[in-house]
Structure formats: structure tokens, C-alpha cells
């Protein structure tokens, strides 16, 4: 009996330790990812110099005298993301308001189902449709020699961020207290005026969360963008072939070596820091929202 109890105790301690290990695993992973990226990304930045690396406007990694400026990628990522947010947020927000406050039950279920499905479609499939539909359309509509450019990437990205913007916005719109609506209605505002004049402003910080989530998604997207953006390291032009931070990493990785390869890790490091900053802002907003409640 005593022996059994001791055995049981040992199992208990062992399992407790095991669960603890699983628990801190995410911390460990984040730390490891950071360490790996720092260790492989910093050497190249040291060699090139931070200034030339971040603000150099010429990327010529395979030239006889290589130049490793990533400003074209940085700006393309910023412009591309900004464009996608600009195009996607109004549509997403309007759709979310419709779902949260207006939709008859059946229509709501249908639209919500559509949003869920859109969220599940793999990014290569978006890329394929973009390549075959959006790129030729952009080419013909604007009379360009090639439609694989920043605009096509923005269109595809805008569609891809819609689901996250819609579902997060819908959730926060639903969380706005009923009393706000009732007060507004009692003062004589119509239902639509109430929704747009009271409910949407009240859900402001939550909607910001949704937008920033969209930013994170757009900044990090690689495959779909690679298939529609043309993938040439130009400074960003709406109708020019461009390369994003993500696609810069992906497109040269398979054949690179030496300093060129190291630089790709540095680009990944920049992208990682970018995403961390986005996450940080997200957290600050969420925490501020919680405090206000």
C-alpha cells in the first residue's frame, strides 16, 4: 500500500512536470525563433551596414558588384499593405455591420458561411486565381504590357484580409452594450443612424484590432503575392513589377549562397520585427480597451 502510494506520488510529480514543460513550450519556441533569426540575420547586416541595408534603394544580389539595399522591399510591403487595408477595410467593416446589426437570420448565415469559406481557401489558390483572372484583367484594363504588378497584389491581398477583418469586427460590434442603441433610438435616430453613429464609434478600438490583424496578415502573406506581383526588385510603382519582403526571402532562397543567403535571413529578421511591432500595437489596443471597460 505504501509502495503504491509512493509510486502514485512519483507519477503525479512526473506528470506535473511534463505538463509544465508543455506549458512553457510556446515561450521556448518564440525564444528559439528569435535566437535563430537574430543569429543568422545579424552577420549580413553588420557586413553591409545597417544604413545601406535598410535604406539602400538598389537590390542587385547576383550582380558582379552586388548591392543589398532592401528599401524597395520595405516600401513595397508598406504600400501593398496600406493599399490592401484601404481597399479591404471599408468593405469588410460594412459587411461586418450588416452581419452584426442588419442581416435577417438566413442572409446572415449565408454571408457568414461565405466569409468562413473565404478564410479557409489556401493562399496558393488565391494566388492561382489572381494569376489567371486579376493579372490579365489589370493588364487589359490599364493597357499594360504585363499585369503582374503592385495593383494586382493589392487586389488579391484585399480579398485575403477580408475574412479576418469581417469576423473580428462582427464580434466587437456585437459586444457593444444594448443600452447605447436604446438611448440613441429613444432620441429619435433611425436604426441605421444608430448603428453607424453610435455602435460603430463605440466599437472603435475593437475595429482597430481587426484592421491591425489584417495588416499582420497582409504583411506576412508570401505565396499569393509571389504569384501576382511580378517579383522584380523595383521601387514600388502601382503599375510596376515589385517584390515584397516576404517574396524577397522566398524567391532567392533556393539558389542563394554566401552573403546573398545571409542577407535573405536579415530580410526575414526585418519582417519578424515588423510583425512583432504589429503584435505589440495590437496588444496595447486590446489592453487599453479592457481598461476602459
Amino acid at each position: 500500500m505504501d509502495k503504491m502510494r509512493r509510486m502514485g506520488k512519483r507519477v503525479e510529480t512526473g506528470m506535473g512536470a511534463l505538463f509544465f514543460l508543455c506549458g512553457v513550450l510556446t515561450i521556448l519556441f518564440v525564444a528559439l525563433i528569435t535566437v535563430f533569426l537574430l543569429a543568422s540575420g545579424i552577420p549580413a547586416i553588420q557586413k553591409i551596414g545597417l544604413f545601406d541595408f535598410l535604406l539602400g534603394s538598389v537590390w542587385a544580389s547576383t550582380a558582379a558588384e552586388p548591392s543589398y539595399g532592401i528599401l524597395p522591399f520595405l516600401l513595397t510591403s508598406v504600400y501593398g499593405t496600406f493599399g490592401a487595408i484601404l481597399a479591404g477595410t471599408p468593405i469588410g467593416l460594412l459587411c461586418a455591420v450588416f452581419l452584426a446589426k442588419m442581416a435577417p437570420e438566413k442572409a446572415g448565415t449565408a454571408v457568414r458561411g461565405a466569409v468562413d469559406l473565404l478564410a479557409g481557401i489556401p493562399s496558393v489558390v488565391y494566388g492561382l486565381v489572381g494569376m489567371i483572372v486579376v493579372v490579365p484583367f489589370v493588364r487589359d484594363a490599364f493597357g499594360l504590357p504585363d499585369g503582374a504588378n503592385l495593383l494586382s497584389a493589392i487586389v488579391v491581398l484585399a480579398v485575403m484580409i477580408l475574412p479576418s477583418v469581417i469576423s473580428v469586427s462582427e464580434t466587437v460590434l456585437r459586444a457593444v452594450p444594448k443600452e447605447y442603441e436604446e438611448a440613441s433610438l429613444a432620441l429619435g435616430a433611425t436604426w441605421t443612424e444608430t448603428v453607424f453613429g453610435v455602435v460603430v464609434p463605440a466599437a472603435k478600438s475593437g475595429i482597430a484590432t481587426a484592421v491591425i490583424l489584417g495588416v499582420g496578415r497582409a504583411v506576412g502573406e508570401a505565396m499569393a503575392v509571389m504569384m501576382v506581383s511580378g517579383n522584380v526588385a523595383n521601387m514600388p510603382k502601382l503599375f510596376g513589377s515589385v517584390r515584397f519582403l516576404t517574396t524577397a526571402v522566398a524567391s532567392e532562397m533556393s539558389y542563394s549562397s554566401g552573403l546573398q543567403r545571409q542577407v535573405l535571413f536579415s530580410i526575414a529578421l526585418v519582417l519578424f520585427l515588423f510583425i512583432l511591432a504589429v503584435n505589440l500595437i495590437l496588444n496595447l489596443i486590446v489592453r487599453r480597451g479592457e481598461r476602459n471597460e
Binding site: F29, V30, L37, G216, V249, A250, F265
Partner: peptide, 19 residues
């Protein structure tokens, strides 16, 4: 741990591929 989990969820897949 919650923060780390959220961070993991936000990292783009291309970075996962690289690491």
C-alpha cells in the same frame, strides 16, 4: 505564456518556413 502563444499565432508562415 498567453503572450507567447499569441506571438506564435501571428508569425507569418514564410518565417516558420525559414526557421
Amino acid at each position: 505564456i498567453g503572450l507567447a502563444t499569441e506571438t506564435l499565432a501571428g508569425i507569418p508562415s514564410i518565417i516558420y518556413g525559414l526557421v
